[in-house]
Design a protein around this nucleic acid. Structure first.
Length: 433
RNA sequence: GCCGCCGUAGCUCAGCGGGUAGAGCGCCGGGCUGUUAACCCGGUGGUCGGUGGUUCGAAUCCACCCGGCGGCGCCA
């Protein structure tokens, strides 16, 4: 046993009555009944009731048990007993107990408001609910990495400090760079595009920073951005990559984190359809027509807001794509559709209840067109010299996308706010802790 | 950037036709041999977010400021 003979609570639940067990963890519940003390121990795998009593514990164990306040860390040893009155039906009757780190008057007791909880985020993150989410997050990140590994993508490390905006400058965080101005990256995309010329298929997982001043349950100022870029891939190829990636991760989570999902009261059936591809494709024109039919005042050239996304999501029980957005409302680097020059070869992936989790496109690989689009968006081509070089030297058709990890996790875990999918969420006016 | 709502005890809140502050939980002390957010008895606890104004008198009315929350736009 690599844990010095200590078992996880989950392992103790599987032991036979009469067997000895050593456990360690934190005090989740504490009740003193006089000559008997109940301690519910919490560890990463679950909870287990410990009992110290005059009946079958040495006097010093009972005394030590009275020091085991909520969230104290403890080591304990005793005999396994079955008892229907214990949570999980099994408890440990103690003959050894040591309070390792005391905890008096733990600030979170239940019922607190969101402001208070966010001020105590460093303590809140150990809660059972948030711990379940961190475990699912871990498996999601592992699944993303596995998918790319299995499909010939190279993991690369783009810079976080950058010089220019990817999509316009108003939402960038400024950083002093020895007297010059640097910006925190909003997207690795342009750098990934440079890397495909050597590696063909690349991906990265980086923090992205957006000073958007958004006040919604779907926005973070610092979020984890999963991005990929593929040479030779057309928009249709990239959409297949996206749906296979999302389906792969969702399936792995259903396979390996089912218990966590159930403890979060999420019905696995909700996610089951998303493990099958292809996902539905909804053409932008069709989306507009459908919205008009639902009574929305929209026309070609409009972008979809939260209400529109929600209304479109009503028709699906899986993630779904919206394709071929108007060129004008999309970023300068997106490829103009040769058959309909007013449209971009761009797509979003939306999930019911959350909205957009992926944005992607075929990139404009034609030098002249790219310059024209940069100007059309009111930008200066001279600011994009290195990026334009990529079209001067061996330009190639290519496509890519970006996925918001926390948005994806919102959908998976059913979290009603994005702050619950990342341990230390960053918002305007909240940098502590 | 825009639109709403909220700041009273450690926490969650009540009090707001103006008269000097309350509850529940927590915490502290005591009791209890089966607790499950344990229970019972007793105790502790506040510059009512800040500043200025109206008034004999302001938690309460007015103005400004600060802090927070929810939503929109924008995005992932």
């Amino acid at each position: 046993m690599p844990r010095d003979g200590y078992l996880y609570t989950r392992e103790v639940l599987g032991l036979e009555p009469g067997q000895r067990a050593r456990v360690r963890g934190w005090v989740y519940r504490y009740r003193d009944l006089g000559s008997k003390v109940f301690i519910v121990l919490r560890d990463p795998e679950g909870i287990l009731q410990l009992v110290a009593s005059e009946e079958h514990s040495p006097r010093e164990v009972l005394e030590e048990a009275r020091r085991a306040d909520i969230e104290a860390s403890i080591e304990a040893e005793g005999v396994v007993a079955r008892d229907p009155r214990a949570p999980g039906g099994v408890e440990l009757r103690l003959d050894k107990l040591r309070v390792v780190g005391e905890s008096h008057d733990f600030p979170i007791k239940g019922g607190e408001g969101i402001d208070y909880l966010l001020d105590n985020r460093h303590l809140w993150i150990r809660s059972r609910k948030l711990t379940l989410i961190w475990r699912i997050r871990h498996t999601a990140l592992q699944a993303f990495r596995e998918y790319f590994e299995k499909h010939g993508f190279w993991e690369v490390s783009p810079p976080i400090l950058t010089q220019a905006a990817v999509e316009g400058g108003a939402t960038l965080f400024k950083v002093d760079f020895f007297g010059d101005t640097a910006y925190l990256s909003q997207s690795a995309q342009l750098y990934l595009e440079a890397l495909i010329y050597g590696l063909e298929k690349v991906w990265s997982l980086t923090p992205s920073f957006r000073a958007e001043r958004s006040r919604t349950r779907r926005h973070l100022y610092e979020y984890w951005h999963l991005e990929a870029e593929e040479a030779w891939a057309r928009m249709e190829d990239e959409m297949r990559t996206v749906e296979e990636l999302v389906a792969y991760a969702t399936k792995k989570i259903l396979d390996e984190r089912l218990e966590e999902l159930e403890q979060l009261r999420q019905k696995p059936e909700r996610l089951e359809p998303a493990t099958k591809t292809p996902y539905p494709r909804l053409d932008y024109d069709e989306a507009i027509a459908r919205l008009q039919k639902k009574g929305f005042d929209v026309a070609f050239g409009d972008d979809f807001g939260a209400d529109e996304e929600r209304a479109l999501g009503e028709d699906y029980d899986t993630p779904f794509f919206i394709t071929f957005f108007p060129l004008k409302i999309k970023a300068f680097y997106m490829k103009e559709d040769p058959e309909r020059p007013d449209r971009a070869r761009a797509f979003d992936l939306l999930v019911p209840g959350v909205g957009e989790i992926v944005g992607g496109s075929e990139r404009e690989d034609d030098y002249e067109k790219l310059v024209q689009h940069i100007k059309m968006h009111g930008l200066d081509p001279r600011d994009y010299e290195w990026y334009l070089d990529l079209r001067r030297y061996g330009s190639v058709p290519h496509s890519g996308f970006g996925l918001g990890v926390e948005r994806y996790l919102m959908w998976i875990t059913g979290a009603d706010h994005i702050r619950d999918t990342i341990p230390f969420p960053r918002f305007r006016d909240r940098l502590y802790p």
